[in-house]
C-alpha cells in the first residue's frame, strides 16, 4: 500500500472532519443547558417564596438554605466528611466483594443457576428489613451503617460484572482455543479484560448508591453516634423542624453522590479510554 492510495486519502480527510472545538467550548456546550435549567428552577422557587411567603419550616426558600450553609457550614462540612469516609469504605467493600462473588458465580455454572436468582430476591427485599438484624450483629454505629450501604450498592456490581464475565465473545474464545491458550491465559488475557467495562458500569451505579446507602444507614442505624454524618444531621434537623438545614444536608449528600459518581466514571474512562464505546468522547 502506498501513501497515495484511496484509503490514505480518506483517512486524511477524516482527520480534518474530526478536529473538534476546544475542550472548554465542548464543556460549556454540555454544561450550559443544565446550568440554565438549575438557575431557572431556583429562581422560580424563590419567586414562589416571595409571593406566597410560607413559613420557613414548611417550605424553606433558596435564601434560607443559603443562610443555613453560612451558619452551619462547619457542622455540614464535618458531617459530609464523616459520610464520605463511610461511603469510601462501603464502596471499596462492595467493589471487592461484588467482583469476587460474581467471579465465583460465573466460574461454577451450577452455582450461577442456583445462587444468581437468589441474589435478585435478596436485592428486592427493602433494606430496612435488614436493619434490626444488622443492629443486633454490629450494634449502633459505623459497622452497621457500612453494612447497609454495602447491601444497597453491591448488587449492581454483582449483576453487571456477572453479565460481563458470561458474555465473552464466542469467536474470541475460539481464537484462544485455536492457539492452545491455557485456562490462566484465557482468564487474564480474555475473560477479565472483556468484563472490565461491565464491572465499571456496575461501579458507577454503586458509587451513587453507596452514598444513599450510607445516609440511609446513618438515618436508621447511627442514631446514638455523638458525631454523625449527613443522615444523622437529617434526623436531627427534621426533629427540630429546621427545614432549611435539612435541605442543606440533603444538598450536601447530593453533591457528594454526584462527585463520587463522576470520579468513578472518570477513573473508569481512564482505564477504558482506548477501546470501549462507552468511554469514547461524544463527537
Amino acid at each position: 500500500m502506498t501513501k497515495s492510495s484511496p484509503v490514505g486519502a480518506a483517512s486524511a480527510g477524516a482527520d480534518v472532519v474530526l478536529r473538534r472545538p476546544s475542550r472548554l467550548v465542548t464543556w460549556l456546550r454540555n454544561a450550559l443547558p443544565v446550568t440554565v435549567a438549575f438557575l431557572v428552577f431556583v429562581g422560580l422557587w424563590q419567586l414562589g417564596i416571595t409571593i406566597f411567603k410560607p413559613q420557613p419550616f414548611i417550605v424553606p426558600g433558596p435564601l434560607n438554605v443559603l443562610q443555613a450553609f453560612q451558619e452551619q457550614g462547619a457542622s455540614l462540612w464535618e458531617s459530609t466528611l464523616i459520610t464520605l469516609r463511610a461511603t469510601a469504605v462501603a464502596f471499596g467493600l462492595s467493589a471487592v466483594l461484588g467482583a469476587a462473588v460474581s467471579f465465583l458465580l460465573t466460574s461454577i455454572p451450577i452455582l450461577y443457576k442456583a445462587v444468581f436468582p437468589l441474589t435478585v430476591v435478596f436485592q428486592s427485599v427493602p433494606v430496612i428489613v435488614f436493619v434490626p438484624l444488622l443492629l443486633t450483629w454490629f450494634g449502633i454505629g459505623m459497622p452497621s451503617i457500612i453494612a447497609v450501604a454495602v447491601i444497597i450498592s453491591i448488587f449492581p456490581i454483582i449483576a453487571n460484572t456477572a453479565i460481563g464475565l458470561r458474555s465473552t465473545d464466542a469467536s474470541l474464545k475460539q481464537l484462544f482455543q485455536l492457539y492452545g491458550a491455557n485456562s490462566w491465559q484465557s482468564l487474564f488475557k480474555l475473560r477479565l479484560p472483556a468484563a472490565l467495562p461491565y464491572f465499571f458500569a456496575g461501579l458507577r451505579i454503586a458509587a451513587g448508591a453507596s452514598v444513599i446507602g450510607v445516609v440511609v444507614g446513618e438515618y436508621m442505624a447511627g442514631m446514638a453516634s455523638t458525631k454523625g454524618g449527613l443522615g444523622f444531621l437529617v434526623v436531627e434537623t427534621a426533629s427540630r423542624l429546621q427545614m432549611a438545614q435539612l435541605a442543606a444536608a440533603g444538598l450536601c449528600a447530593a453533591i457528594l453522590g454526584i462527585s463520587f459518581f463522576l470520579l468513578v466514571g472518570y477513573v473508569g474512562n481512564l482505564f477504558l479510554k482506548n477501546w470501549h464505546e462507552s468511554a469514547r468522547e461524544e463527537r
Binding site: 479484560p193 477501546w275 470501549h276
Partner: peptide, 11 residues
C-alpha cells in the same frame, strides 16, 4: 484460522 469478523481484542 481467519474468522469472518476481524475478532480483535479491543483493549
Amino acid at each position: 484460522f481467519v474468522f469472518q469478523e476481524p475478532t480483535l481484542l479491543p483493549w
